[in-house]
Nucleic acid binder design. Structure first.
Lengths: 152, 152
DNA sequence: TTGACCTTGACCATTCCTGACTTTTGGATA
DNA sequence: TATCCAAAAGTCAGGAATGGTCAAGGTCAA
């Protein structure tokens, strides 16, 4: 079994045991326990605990630091938001993103204010400093993170 | 729990008990009571009781010295969002941005869900593709765009 | 053979904690 | 009154405890 799989399995088990869908760990401790370098933990988190898979990851550095992983869904596609998150690829245009948000609002899944905020965050207006060639990637990433944050 | 957290919790409790949103303490006394060096109190004040978080700290040295902490309310009337937008510069760190949003939520100016969405959009988690050196610029830009979108 | 996925380690960034040294203030004293 | 002293609070640099990033190279299945 690959290291990556072991680490992922370990974290999933932590989530199960926790019961509340939330697990907190210390990167160095976990790396030590599983016999890998600490940065491997980051690799696992970025490749296996993404919004697409229904996870939200938060962390804090420094003394008393931690990594917190939240599971926002139990099964694929259980939330209309997850459906969108999974449908969005690695990149998305401003127009498409806008259409998605407006559709969510029309369906009554998000309020007018949330729609406004999300549209603002997905518009190129805010992307002036971002190299043009990665804007659509950033937009897709932001859209997924925001939608995932709304689940539960 | 970290010393820092304990001290912060203690001060917040003092503020609650006071009722008038104002607490006064003696640095050395508090340090003694909580078992830390006095300068630790300063660290907590500068890291957890900042204007972004809605606090004002005043103090006096020498005989009869004191530290006074006040919780300030954002004016509801004249668009508090515009006030914040104007206060944000061209760049902002994840921590400061988070403090601002949490303060807005604490003051009842934005809902829990909007707070969630904005925090997700301001977290480095969503900035993976953005070069590190421009992340804080993008964050500031996004924050201002989102807040502006809330002004009716 | 090649491209996607995995692994490692060197270097970076942030947060917390401490203690030595500094500054300010009010009151005691010459 | 002019000085000095003691009692506050402030500053700062350094070290420890965390997590983050990135580039280089390895593995493996199609």
């Amino acid at each position: 079994m690959r290291l990556t799989d072991e680490i992922a399995a370990y974290i999933l088990q932590m989530l199960e045991l926790a019961g509340d869908g939330e697990a907190e760990l210390r990167r160095n401790e976990l790396a030590e326990a599983l016999g890998c370098v600490p940065s491997q933990i980051n690799y696992v988190l970025t490749s296996r605990f993404t919004p697409e898979q229904g996870f939200i990851v938060e962390s804090k550095r420094g003394g008393g630091g931690y990594i917190r992983i939240r599971r926002v869904k139990l099964e694929r596609g259980v939330s209309p938001f997850m459906h969108v998150v999974n449908a969005v690829g690695d990149e998305i245009s401003p127009v498409t993103a806008q259409a998605i948000i407006e559709n969510l609002e029309d369906q009554g899944l998000i309020s007018r204010n949330i729609s406004r905020v999300m549209l603002a965050a997905l518009s190129d207006q805010a992307y002036r400093d971002i190299p043009i060639n990665i804007r659509d990637r950033v937009r897709a990433s932001l859209l997924k993170q925001m939608l995932t944050a709304l689940i539960t």
